Amino acid sequence: MDYRIIGDSCLDLTPEMKKEGKIRIVPLTLHVDGVDYRDDETFDQKNFIAVVAASQTGPKSSCPSPEDFKQAFGEDDVPAFCVTLSAELSGSYNSALLGQRLSQEDHPDKKIHVFNSRSACIGETLIALKIEEYAEAGASFEAIVEKVEAYIRHQETFFVLDNLETLRKNGRLTGVKAALVSVLNIKPVMMATPEGTIEQCSMGRGTKKALKKMVEEVGNKVSDFENRIFGISHCNCLERAIFVKEEIEKRYPFKKIVIADTAGVGTMYANDGGVVIAF
């Protein structure tokens, strides 16, 4: 069937996905010290990292409007699937639902489903790939929704960041955890809960030890590696992403590993050197 896949701009595209152009991205807007940065193809990651590092107040973001999502769904009856940031972390999911309502007012027969990823970054990416897999295999709209919602319920997301300040300033973490990172060089291994919130599950002294701890957590969560794609998002630190990939390959036989650099929203929260994994 004909179909569309839409993601908000926290969905990190791999180089291959960018080349294929099958996924339409609806950008969030990032704000730093009164300046707006649109999270689209014009986003300059290195410049944004420098701007955030110099800011005393830190960055914030605003989600796309319902009208933005409506336009992405298309002015026709082609079925559309949308993947957004965790509803616990952003208003993007609710905005997409309103966009769905607007679209279906004009096109009552149009099928649209908005997936709350309960994740972010590469977690959203893997969900989009799963939608594409089922759609290309000829599954019905209803079957895709059922299968992908089940996939989301069993997906795991972890991350290790050098800098937790943005998460702290935006109310996602306590100040104590952020202080541990800056003062003691303790790097927490964080994870997404089934509800899409964030909690700490482990920690390591220094980034490399924390990344290894994160890799160890993978084996505690799943065993059906051969049926899963493993995803890595990194913020301006490809060497760390490759290190994680190599550590994963030593231990677990995932059927495929994909790597993406963070777009604007992922860069805002992960900060320079952050690594996010999902599987």
Rank of each mutant, 00 (worst) to 15 (best):
F43M: 04
P79L: 03
R172A: 02
D106Y: 04
G196I: 03
A263G: 15
D68W: 00
E216C: 07
E132N: 09
S117E: 00
G99A: 12
F115D: 02
C10N: 15
V35Q: 14
G196S: 05
K70C: 07
D76H: 08
C10L: 11
F43H: 06
A50R: 15
T157S: 15
F230P: 11
L238F: 09
E146N: 10
A179Q: 09
L129F: 02
Y37I: 04
A53F: 08
K213N: 12
K245H: 09
D162C: 10
Q71S: 15
T174E: 04
V35A: 13
V215C: 00
T197V: 04
L97V: 15
D77Q: 12
R172S: 02
G273C: 06
T207Q: 09
M1Y: 13
E217L: 08
S202K: 07
V218P: 03
G74E: 01
N94P: 04
T174G: 12
Q155E: 04
V26G: 13
T207G: 01
Q45I: 12
F48T: 00
T84D: 02
N185Q: 08
Y3N: 07
A179F: 12
N163S: 13
V35T: 15
E136R: 13
E199H: 12
N236I: 05
D106I: 06
D40T: 11
A96D: 06
I112M: 07
E124C: 10
E124W: 02
K169S: 10
N220P: 02
F43W: 03
F230V: 09
R38V: 15
N220M: 12
S65Y: 10
G34D: 02
G274N: 02
S182C: 00
N271R: 07
R24N: 12
V218W: 06
P188E: 00
I248T: 05
